[in-house]
Amino acid sequence: MRLEHFDHRRHASKPFSSGNEVMDQWLRRFAKRSQRDSLTRVFVLVEGADAKVGKLPILGYFALSMASVEVGSLAVTDRERLPRYPVPAVLMTRLAVDNTRQGKGLGRALLVKAATKAVLASEMVAARLFVVDALDDGAARFYENFGFARCPDDPLRLYIGLQRLSDGLK
């Protein structure tokens, strides 16, 4: 299996079915434009050689973009702890695995791949947080198992420090 940048000419988004319509529809209807407009980078998991006719089925995907995080107004002492503010972050807005491949650890593997890319991005352009959007409480608990912390303002958005990831993924 391999991870590739989503290319609508080579990857078949229509048959993708994760069991969640929001995730499936986003891939089918918005991924191409979002990537073209550089709003997100979409990575798809595929296997097999390129077929001469037809497209490769997508086994899973995730989407990354840059974000910034602010918290109210900062005190002078807070600013000393934050050389750069707002705090730059890598945001993973979506992660999904096709029905036919669920239960085999691909979601966890894709999370590692996404986190690795976030760490790489932070080494190129500076970011301090990896933020993930969970679809529901079950997904949020999945991320909590990996050390992500739920935001008090939005329990379906979870955060982890990129330095912590970088140290742990080496």
Binding site: V71, G72, S73, D78, L91, V112, C151, Y159
Partner: peptide, 28 residues
Amino acid sequence: ANRIQLSEESRAWFFEVLEDTSPLPDAW
């Protein structure tokens, strides 16, 4: 969509996350 604004009440939590250097859980 990519500008995340947290509340004042999240301030302490926010700094905890930024400054957390504990090892990653075994799940990784």
